[in-house]
Design a binder for these strands. Structure first.
Lengths: 222, 222
DNA sequence: ACTAAAAATTTGTTTAGCCTAATAAAATTT
DNA sequence: AAATTTTATTAGGCTAAACAAATTTTTAGT
């Protein structure tokens, strides 16, 4: 059974959306908004995916991936993130330039290719945005990272990833001079607007709005 | 104006076929056979490509690429061959394993990507089968190579490319131990069946059928 | 519990890319 | 030059993937 490029994109969308709300059912409208298709189009596709046993679909109730659907989705995510590493590490793209190209490359179909690419890149565990790369069996490195705005204490953290992949957000961080792996020391949390004053790499202090802070993932520094 | 993956494949087919008979018009049936589509399907597509000014099409007479069509086709060929170099040089695929994967990769759309890939690979001039890689302006390194079976003299040659890219043929050459760059000394030309007795790299002698010889491209050794 | 709003589905079209069968044009044979 | 064969096109249908408009189901507000 072959799975079309479009079907792969739907499975990836369902996977991503169910991760956000952690494993819950995903609604037609959520998918519609995410993929920028009309709800009617989504309903059509859901019927076809159910037909192929890639999702469990109950009309008016939402969908969940089957094991098979999940495996497929994770494989696409794996490919996407490996190609992003290739683009940044080997071709010297910036982290805000790789998304669209990886969206295309993720659909190239060859197990042998992806296995060799993985080796060539040194079996990386994370992509350039700090997102974990599933291994060949679909196992994800569990992330114990939290958004900065959920850290209530004035501790010392490490910037390990982002929640938002838009060009503008990534360029904003680059502009500040923030890169994955940098240390972040919360100096102040402003009670009025929940903004954060943070010292980057023990040198320059910056203010982050709560919105920005919610998209910066940090681990506690050991 | 966007050009679909399918349209790109038609343009590439027309380009390739017109090269074989050197720049001549290409017929519906030739394209049909090459792409394994029915002639009616081809006619449909030719109308659409003509609409888009990618080909000059006169019903019942055949087609030629316009300048625009040619540029597009050459770009696809360039991408295909660069990706083949990547697969062989960087990922250690064998030369008989890369065609299908490159058929997919050739449609990835990003000028920046292809430019960086070119640099990453060291701006190669030939792909793993000895085919010339068009430069960014679409210029091809002219090849002065001829098929072995058109060499009538018993001279000394260098194996620079192949005319046939099928797995079985390439594996046959690999089996013999023949690689691009090897020296080929014609020792005998059998008048009866036009087969060739050839010494490879001054060591082992082999017989090549005329058919095999017609698919081996050689230059005169300087 | 009832009604209004929101969410999801059904129905009917569209376009790209394929097909088969029927027909038309061009090339070849006699 | 007419008949036959080959080549190409037209006509009509199919499926995947999208849309808008109409309808149904669920949810939320009183």
């Amino acid at each position: 059974m072959t799975i079309s490029l479009t079907e792969e994109n739907y499975l990836k969308a369902i996977y991503t959306l169910s991760r956000l709300g952690d494993e819950s059912e995903v609604t037609t409208n959520e998918i519609s908004k995410h993929l920028k298709n009309k709800a009617a189009t989504v309903t059509d596709m859901l019927k076809r995916l159910a037909e192929k046993k890639l999702i469990n679909y109950i009309p008016y109730q939402g969908v969940k991936l089957t094991e098979k659907g999940k495996r497929t989705a994770i494989k696409v995510v794996r490919k996407h993130r490996l190609w992003e590493v290739f683009l940044v590490d080997k071709l010297n793209f910036k982290w805000d330039e790789v998304h669209e190209i990886a969206e295309q490359l993720e659909h190239i179909n060859s197990d042998e290719l992806i296995q060799r690419l993985d080796v060539f890149l040194g079996k990386p565990k994370f992509d350039p945005h700090g997102d974990p790369i599933p291994d060949a069996n679909g196992q994800l490195n569990t992330i114990k990272a939290l958004p900065l705005n959920q850290r209530k204490s004035k501790g010392n953290f490490i910037f390990v990833g982002v929640n938002e992949h838009s060009k503008s957000f990534l360029q904003h961080l680059t502009g500040i001079g923030l890169k994955i792996g940098d240390s972040l020391l919360i100096e102040e949390i402003n009670e009025f607007d929940n903004s954060f004053k943070v010292k980057i790499n023990k040198t320059n202090s910056q203010f982050f709005s709560n919105k920005v802070a919610s998209n910066i993932l940090v681990e506690i520094k050991k």
